[in-house]
Simulated assay, not measured.
Amino acid sequence: MNIGMKTAMLLAGTAAMAACAKKAPEELPPPPPSTTSTPAPAPAPTPTGPRVGSQAHFENAVNGQNVIYFDTDRFNIDSEDSARLQTQAQYLARYPQVSITIEGHADERGTREYNLALGERRANAAKNFLVSLGVNAGRIATVSYGKERPVALGSNEEAWARNRRAVSVVVN
């Protein structure tokens, strides 16, 4: 290949590449808009304490008065039980979306069948009292555990007294 031919090819390649080169615009684009941003809204405060409608919230709101105690072989509501149940009724009135189950319990003395029946009478006595205070009966279920779920182990009056109870538990 002669020098003339090489020069011609070199000039043709240079011209082709020059045709592909990006040309500068005749006018520059406007500057970007000002970036003064509005401050992001403050995050909502994180709620502290237990979730409304939880067992922990219920127990906190009623000051731990979700348990009532009974005398031996009894299921009647005394004045101390009445005050505790009134506190529970106020909570249930404030939070109508909350439903509860009342668990009836007995101490270890007596037969299984007797204690299941006694636990049921205790749970129903608490339920009936709450209903008399205006709580909708459909929001309250009852269950009897008899002597099957003691909170205090022992065969003495102190343990027996702690196990003769009705416990209100939030249903989620």
Rank of each mutant, 00 (worst) to 15 (best):
G53C: 09
A44F: 05
R139A: 05
H57V: 04
A61H: 08
L118N: 07
G53T: 07
A126M: 09
G119T: 06
V67Q: 07
S79F: 07
A56D: 14
H105Q: 04
D73G: 15
R149S: 05
D78H: 14
A61S: 15
G49E: 14
D81Q: 06
I102P: 08
L153H: 00
G49P: 01
G119N: 02
D73N: 15
D71S: 15
R149E: 10
G154Y: 10
A56C: 00
A159C: 03
A117E: 13
V62Q: 09
F75H: 15
A106M: 04
K127H: 09
L130H: 01
W160E: 06
Q88Y: 06
R149F: 01
A141Q: 11
I102Y: 00
V67C: 01
T48F: 06
A141D: 11
N60P: 02
A61W: 06
G104V: 06
D73E: 15
R112A: 11
R164F: 05
A106N: 04
S82Q: 15
G146E: 01
N156S: 01
R165T: 05
E148S: 11
Y145K: 01
S155A: 10
A61R: 11
S99F: 05
I77M: 08
L153V: 07
Q90Y: 12
V143M: 12
S132G: 14
K127F: 04
L116R: 08
G134Y: 13
D81E: 14
T48P: 07
N128P: 10
R162C: 08
A123N: 13
Y69H: 01
E113A: 15
V52W: 07
D71M: 11
N128Q: 12
I68H: 02
Y69R: 02
I140R: 10
N124C: 12
L153A: 13
S99D: 01
Q55G: 05
A152V: 09
Y114K: 14
V131A: 08
E157M: 10
D78W: 12
K147L: 03
A89C: 03
A117D: 12
T87A: 15
F129Y: 12
F129N: 00
L130P: 12
N60C: 03
E103A: 00
I100Y: 09
G154Q: 00
R122P: 01
R139H: 08
V67A: 06
F70K: 07
R74H: 12
G49F: 14
D107I: 00
R139G: 00
A93E: 02
I140F: 12
S155T: 14
G104L: 09
A126T: 01
T46W: 06
Y91I: 10
N63Y: 03
I102K: 13
N163T: 05
A159E: 02
R149T: 02
T111D: 07
A126F: 08
R122D: 04
E80R: 14
D81Y: 03
A126V: 02
G53R: 02
F129C: 09
R121Y: 12
D71N: 15
I102C: 03
N136I: 02
G53N: 07
R139D: 01
N124P: 05
I102Q: 02
E80I: 13
P96H: 10
V135D: 07
D71G: 15
E103D: 08
E108G: 14
E59H: 01
R94P: 06
A152C: 13
F75I: 00
P150A: 10
S144N: 11
R112P: 05
E80K: 12
T101C: 03
N76I: 08
D78I: 10
G64S: 12
L116W: 03
S144I: 10
E80C: 01
